[in-house]
Amino acid sequence: MTRNVVWFAALWLLAATIIPARPALALTETEVAEGLLCYACPGEPLTADRCRGGDQMRATIRRMIAEGKTKQEILSYFAQEFGEDILTYPPKRGFNLVAYVGPFVGLLVGAAVAAVVVRRWSSAGRRRSEPRDPGSAPSRLDEKTRRRIEEELSHLDEEA
């Protein structure tokens, strides 16, 4: 079975390299609009907005896409015209970096704490399960019995 996994993994990588990918889709109005708020309706995402101001912005986006501008170029244009708070995301610089980095720092701290806890608990568990008198330790189970016990125990697992 292990050989199968290796075989499939190799096939997967091969396919990834030799089969042509679907051509990249052209930039759409919505892709750009997702990065913008309507200038006329404070706080309203341009994707959800249906006012005249929003129509003007969408027309500008369509024109700039037709001119071959990239998403970033179009967003920068609107940020220059109306200020950065027209963007639906904080630009990645200065204090705003805290927003981007903060969650991952939180994740790392949480994962580190969890790792320490699991390590401490598992060493405590090992200490507990060590037999006090080596002479009284149960004899090793043969593989077949051990598998049967494991199987039956797993069926007894009533929880998620």
């Binding site: 997702e34 995402p45 708070d85 963007l87 995301y89 200065g94």
Partner: peptide, 12 residues
Amino acid sequence: VTGNKVTVGPPF
């Protein structure tokens, strides 16, 4: 902190 009210939306 900075006096600027930024928007944090779907892309973020």
